[in-house]
């Protein structure tokens, strides 16, 4: 949090220097209007995803929210990440989640007990956190301007690929090892009974 604040402080400083050439909020550009609309859609989908009582619907609303974020990436000119987002999240993760719901026999349709008794606390914490963070962030970045039009392209596949395999190749390889470890871990967890002939082997054998 303090890191955010210090970052905000430096950002304010840089923003103040360029404050004269910054357009106001009341005259948004076309990109901004689009970003805002997609952002509202994304937020609405996300809120629905965490509040709906139909579990499968929640997963589907999550697809909408993640897709919205992909569009936002595009609007921020990070195209490669946008496609990766679509591929991995929408394509893989959500499917995995749907499988999970299916395997745990999540009820289709409205389930009255989707939310736990912890809900008021959760609401209070979330709203407070949102209020605090929005206050801080807006206070810090209200005059900061992202220049998308001028300069070299930033998020094209070309740029990203070059960066990734020039500067970030070692973490990238380390990440591949992590993925392998996760793969092995998932398999170990899913294997049952370690060769023991448990009687419960039949009922969960789908995976």
């Amino acid at each position: 949090m303090s890191a955010t604040v210090s970052l905000a402080a430096t950002a304010t400083a840089t923003a103040a220097s360029t404050a004269s050439g910054t357009p106001g909020f009341l005259s948004p550009t076309g990109v901004e209007i689009l970003f805002l609309l997609v952002g509202l859609l994304t937020l609405g989908a996300a809120i629905t995803a965490v509040t709906t009582r139909q579990l499968v619907h929640a997963a589907l609303w999550l697809v909408v929210a993640l897709g919205g974020i992909a569009v936002e990436y595009l609007l921020l000119s990070a195209e490669f990440i946008a496609w990766v987002q679509v591929l991995i999240y929408v394509g893989a993760v959500v499917v995995l989640l749907l499988f999970g719901l299916m395997l745990t026999r999540a009820p289709i349709g409205r389930s009255p007990d989707a939310d736990s008794g912890n809900r008021p606390v959760a609401l209070a914490v979330a709203v407070t956190a949102a209020a605090v963070l929005v206050t801080v962030v807006v206070d810090a970045f209200r005059t900061t301007w992202i220049d998308l039009e001028n300069g070299a392209p930033q998020g094209t596949t070309d740029v990203t690929g070059r960066i990734l395999f020039q500067h970030w190749v070692l973490p990238f390889e380390a990440l591949s090892v992590l993925l392998l470890a996760a793969l092995v871990g998932a398999i170990v967890l899913s294997r049952r009974g370690d060769g023991r002939n448990g009687t419960g082997a039949a009922d969960g054998g789908e995976r």
Partner: peptide, 9 residues
């Protein structure tokens, strides 16, 4: 969840 909520609060 309670623990986590209190922790975050």
């Amino acid at each position: 969840q309670t623990y986590l909520g209190l922790l975050l609060a």
